[in-house]
């Protein structure tokens, strides 16, 4: 366990070095948040929008910004790169589990992002002074917290799986791009998925992506009835197991294929 903590610490130091990339990542979040804030502001001038109040929508936007910083990451891009240039070989030599190694590596970046995003949201609130909701219901908060943990793992699994494409192809940036935009849409990063028609909504909820952001946020905003809640949690857990299984399988297949070419 200690070695993973060291990984975390080293990765933290490294992240501070890649300041520009970090800055850019945060800028993207901030501008996105600003844009959405104004969109919702406009749409709720005359009252509720799709059953959401102004405060709920603003909370959704801020919440999405903060949650994204923890749940979404980009370090896993490096995995594909490392596989492609052969650097990956050293993991096979070390007494270390690659999956968990990368996880802790990611964690450092996410923690930094998280701190920054709290800061950003704080500044924004100070300047714009919007209405927002601070949830106080204990059971909601517990479920909320639990859903975030699950979302963290779910995202990591999905992202890791996509990176494994690198075992089969030199081209990993394209699929990554596709994956990330698919996520933007279906995770509810921009707006609550419930604004869609019932059919579309249930389709999205049967896919794993909705559980990354929409699900936690709707728990926080108390938009989920208890029965729905249990069902959706179950579905999410099933997805986690399925994807974990697929990942393990693809990993072993990919490893066989990996010839350590490159260096």
């Amino acid at each position: 366990m200690k070695k993973y903590w060291t990984v975390f610490k080293m990765s933290w130091a490294r992240e501070l070095e890649y300041r520009f990339n970090f800055f850019l990542w945060r800028l993207r979040s901030f501008i996105g948040m600003t844009l959405l804030y104004f969109v919702w502001f406009s749409l709720t001038l005359k009252g509720k929008f799709a059953g959401f109040t102004e405060a709920e929508l603003f909370t959704y936007v801020f919440g999405a910004n903060i949650l994204r910083s923890i749940i979404f990451g980009s370090q896993t891009r490096n995995i594909a790169e490392e596989i492609n240039n052969g650097w990956f070989s050293r993991y096979l030599l070390m007494p270390i589990n690659h999956f968990w190694f990368e996880f802790f590596r990611e964690l450092a970046q996410r923690t930094l992002n998280f701190i920054s995003s709290i800061f950003e949201v704080g500044i924004f609130i100070l300047i714009a002074k919007p209405n927002f909701i601070l949830e106080k219901n204990f059971s909601s908060l517990t479920f909320f917290f639990f859903s975030i943990i699950l979302a963290l793992f779910l995202y990591y699994l999905l992202s890791y799986l996509v990176s494994l494409v690198a075992f089969w192809s030199r081209e990993a940036m394209g699929p990554r791009f596709l994956f990330e935009w698919l996520l933007e849409f279906s995770s509810g990063a921009y707006f609550p998925l419930s604004v869609f028609s019932e059919f579309l909504f249930f389709t999205l909820m049967s896919l794993p992506f909705a559980y990354l952001l929409y699900f936690p946020l709707s728990i926080y905003l108390e938009k989920m009835h208890n029965s729905e809640l249990i069902n959706f949690f179950a579905l999410e857990l099933i997805w986690i197991f399925v994807i974990a299984f697929i990942t393990k399988y693809i990993w072993s297949k990919g490893l066989k294929r990996f010839t350590g070419e490159g260096i």
Partner: peptide, 19 residues
């Protein structure tokens, strides 16, 4: 010459637009 990337980016851009 990078077929996978080509297709992925094309789809990705359409998804982004469509979304």
């Amino acid at each position: 010459s990078n077929r996978i990337d080509f297709v992925s980016y094309l789809f990705g851009k359409f998804i982004r637009f469509g979304f």
